[in-house]
Amino acid sequence: MSRVRIRRAAAAAVAALALATLPSAAHAAAAPAAGAGARPPPPPQGGTDRPVVPPGAGHGRGPGGHRTWTGGQVRQGLVYRSDALSKLTDTDVTTVSGLGLTKVIDFRIPMEVQYDGADRLPAGLSPTARPVSDLGLYGTLVGAIGSGDPVKQEQMLGGGRAEAYMRDIYRTFVTSPENRAQFAATLREIADGRQGPVLYHCTSGKDRTGWMSYVLLRALAVPEDTAERDYLASNTFRAAYDAKVRAGLKQSGRMQNPDLLIPLQEVRQDYLDSATAQLEADYGSFYGYLTQGLGLDLRTLAKLQTKLVR
């Protein structure tokens, strides 16, 4: 196999990992039984919108229903989050069109879009590219899975290295001026009373997208522990599919120990804590992060409340 084909195969495997689908070589063995392809149930703590984005978009959901410190409740149907939308079927696209979206924001870097494909969206709706750095994680996974070498994979991902990589990524959500600018722009658009329903996503819909959702909920005065549970709920939505991905990668021979990927597939409290500890170190408080780090003025924060909390 040529080097280009090896790289493409590895990238396909990475995309399968991130999108909770399976590489074609492993799909037949690990695909769910007929009728088992429905979305996982909502997380047990409730409070958030039930998943409405179709299965091709993974665990799509919104922040609606959460209670705030002020006694309000986050409105439903104005903000959605999901995995990448590149694998939607025609039926899925029709379902998405029913959401009335006026903007789709894509946090993926160009390499991810290149290998995963551009979003499939209803006619008249184009994605807004707003890349947030993954510190080279996607390329690292391409190299690790593409090598097929268990020793190299262990060296790259084992011994706590995958977890450390994730903590570093989360810190850059706070430390990188470019990343802060992307999150800030998204919050300003969500706050805009002239803007209709917004959906944002990355590749797997859990890290960059998860941080965006956590920040949004905190900005709306949703209690911190509730925002944390909402963030961690991605594990409930993804668990069964992620396990099938690991089984498929092992069966295909790409990985002898696909459990090395678990720290990359999951969201974890200590990942979130890495980002929140960083914002406290840099800005003193969450409010300082919003106003100094993201540059949001009081008027914008008030508009968020007015629009999204009833």
Results as ranks from 00 to 15, higher is better:
3 R>P: 00
7 R>F: 03
10 A>M: 04
14 V>A: 14
14 V>Q: 09
16 A>D: 12
18 A>N: 11
19 L>K: 07
20 A>Y: 07
21 T>M: 07
27 H>N: 10
27 H>Y: 12
38 A>I: 10
40 P>E: 15
45 Q>S: 07
49 D>W: 07
56 G>C: 08
59 H>A: 09
70 T>K: 15
72 G>H: 10
74 V>H: 08
75 R>G: 12
75 R>C: 14
77 G>V: 07
81 R>W: 14
81 R>S: 10
91 T>P: 06
92 D>M: 13
100 G>P: 00
104 V>T: 13
108 R>P: 08
112 E>G: 07
115 Y>N: 01
123 A>C: 09
124 G>C: 05
128 T>A: 05
132 V>Q: 00
137 L>R: 02
137 L>I: 04
139 G>E: 08
140 T>F: 03
142 V>N: 00
147 S>E: 02
149 D>R: 04
149 D>W: 03
156 M>I: 07
162 A>Q: 09
166 M>E: 11
167 R>E: 13
172 T>G: 01
172 T>N: 05
176 S>N: 03
181 A>F: 00
182 Q>I: 00
190 I>W: 01
193 G>A: 15
199 L>Y: 08
200 Y>I: 02
204 S>R: 04
213 S>T: 12
213 S>Y: 02
215 V>C: 09
217 L>M: 09
218 R>L: 15
229 R>I: 11
230 D>M: 14
236 T>F: 04
240 A>F: 02
241 Y>R: 15
241 Y>I: 01
242 D>C: 10
243 A>S: 13
251 Q>L: 15
258 P>T: 00
271 Y>T: 08
278 Q>K: 12
278 Q>N: 08
281 A>E: 14
288 G>M: 11
293 G>H: 05
295 G>N: 03
299 R>H: 06
302 A>Q: 05
308 L>Q: 04
